[in-house]
């Protein structure tokens, strides 16, 4: 490394660190608030005067927190697996096949992103009731089984795969589905990792639909359960912060595991305009 490189590198680190502090500050605040009493939670200090683990005890003992945690896990894992498979399949088809109606289908899928969830919950709920899905995990998960964001992301990535790889496989007699699973999917691992992370986060934190469809506390997901700490007289922010702190831990672990894939994988597949 020469001197100018080292100089830019130092500047880069300083710059990145300053930004990182700004980025992480509210998160640190959330974490420190979870150790505060309800009196202290409104004070602006980052270090609690009298740190307490009472909030954690309360959350684990007086609510169905472990059950909510499990529910969220089931919902996020199942929808993420489904999204990874179907979104790649659709993305691949839209990127690499020529067929009539291709662009229209793409735009139509994108158009589903343009309606706020608030306007979809009523027909969904009627559907759940008429099909007898009440009080099932399926009722919470079904709207998220395929995501349009994911289709778009995968389409962008799939379009960068060189055609000759696919044609070579065809000549070797690999079936069309075999090409998708064995040739294409390994090439887009980084995109899959990215999609997995962001889809998991999205479903883990989803609120409105699970709130509406879950009838009894044992079917709540974490965000729905946590919303019960905010009531008419008073919002127990120390409990909400505690719940949020606990609920982000699996996300951090998930991110640490998958983020290596993002960088490694992409470097191999190439992503050329």
């Amino acid at each position: 490394m020469n001197r100018t490189d080292r100089k830019t590198s130092v500047i880069a680190y300083i710059f990145l660190t300053i930004f990182a502090i700004v980025m992480v500050f509210p998160f640190v605040w959330m974490f420190s608030s979870s150790f505060k009493t309800s009196e202290e939670v409104y004070e602006m200090s980052l270090i609690p005067d009298e740190p307490t683990v009472e909030n954690y005890e309360y959350i684990f003992n007086y609510s169905l927190f472990p059950r909510w945690f499990l529910n969220s896990m089931i919902v996020a894992v199942v929808t993420t697996i489904s999204v990874l498979f179907f979104d790649s399949l659709v993305g691949y088809t839209l990127a690499k096949y020529t067929f009539p109606g291709k662009n229209i289908i793409f735009i139509l899928i994108l158009s589903t992103l343009m309606i706020p969830t608030e306007m979809l919950v009523i027909p969904w709920y009627i559907m759940v009731r008429q099909l007898g899905w009440m009080e099932t995990y399926w009722s919470i998960m079904f709207p998220g089984m395929i995501s349009a964001f994911g289709v778009f992301l995968m389409r962008q990535f799939m379009s960068t795969i060189p055609d000759y790889l696919i044609d070579a496989a065809r000549i070797d007699g690999v079936s069309e589905f075999g090409i998708f699973i064995r040739i294409v999917m390994p090439l887009v691992k980084p995109a899959l990792a990215t999609l997995a992370i962001f889809n998991f986060v999205g479903n883990w934190n989803a609120f409105l639909w699970p709130l509406i469809v879950a009838q009894t506390p044992k079917m709540y997901t974490l965000p729905v359960g946590l919303s019960y700490f905010s009531s008419e007289n008073l919002t127990s922010w120390e409990l909400i912060m505690t719940g949020a702190a606990v609920s982000t831990i699996p996300l951090i672990i998930f991110f640490i595991i998958f983020q290596k894939q993002i960088v490694k994988g992409i470097a191999m597949s190439g992503l050329k305009g």
Binding site: I122, Y125, I126, L211
Partner: peptide, 19 residues
């Protein structure tokens, strides 16, 4: 029961579904 904040959503969605 349901959260105080979401009273109207819960009612508004349930009634048309007959629940």
């Amino acid at each position: 029961t349901f959260p105080y904040e979401n009273f109207n959503e819960k009612v508004a969605v349930s009634v048309p579904a007959g629940v």
